[in-house]
Every structure is written in C-alpha cells, then in structure tokens.
Amino acid sequence: MKTLILKTASIYLLPVLLVFSVFILLRGHYLPGGGFVGGLIAAIAFVLHAFANGLSESKNLLKIHPGFLMPLGLALAFLSGVAPVIVDDPFMTGLWFPDPFPVIGNVGSALFFDIGVYLVVVGVTLTIIFTISESA
C-alpha cells in the first residue's frame, strides 16, 4: 500500500494528528475527549504512518518500543493516585492547582491520570498492531 500520495500525506498528517490527539486529551475534562480517545487517535496516526511508509520507518520514528509506554503510563496514573496520600488525603483524591493555567485550564492530579491513560492506550494499541503486522 505504499502509494506516493499517501506516503507524502502521512508525513504531514502524523504531526497534525498527534497534536490533535494531545488537544483531545487536554480538553477532555471540559469537552468531549480524554485520554482514551486521545490515545486511540495517536495510535491511529502511527498506524497510518506505518501503512504508508512501512513498519520499520515508524518504529525508527518512535525511537522506543511502544510497549514501554505501557508501564510509563501505568506508573504515571498510579502516582497521580498515590500523590494525595503524601498530603494525607485518601488514595485518588483530586488535587488541584488553585489557578487555571493558560491554554490548558485547571491542572490537577486528574490531568496527570488522564495522561497516564493516554500513554497506556497508545502503548497497548501500537504494541498489538505492530506485533501483529510484524509477524503477519
């Protein structure tokens, strides 16, 4: 499926889609979106790139095996849950910075949790798709 148009397009589409996925992730707390959808979109972006340019190309682009994103995301999500314990709140209590940040809005432990979800979803999806297309 290595058509020239798709190949050219995918090079530009990848960053656009990735930015879009991060945008979806960040706005998730206020508008439709969130870690799950964001992660899936990011994964689709990479899959598209892999379709157009070949798997090894996308892997080079990623630098690390997508599998490593899973423990990273899990750790982030878990830590954001544990963080409140340090300030003597029960596990998973939401902690928030008092003032909203520009662009992103309010920042709290829930956001980091969502980023963790995002990373896990990207990691899981890409691991599955990459392993399958490698062995297929």
Binding site: L31, A110, F113, D114, V117, V121
Partner: peptide, 27 residues
Amino acid sequence: AHGKNVVNVILVDFRGTDTLIEISVLA
C-alpha cells in the same frame, strides 16, 4: 472535580481506581 465533561470526570476522578485497573487489564 473541576471538570465539565462528566463522562471524563467519572473516568479519571470519581471512578479513577476502576480506570487504573482497566488500563492495567489493557496492558
């Protein structure tokens, strides 16, 4: 929970532990 998308707030805040376990299952 400082969120307006209630579905997302449920997922990452109110029922965060469930989601944590869910992503572990995915992994």
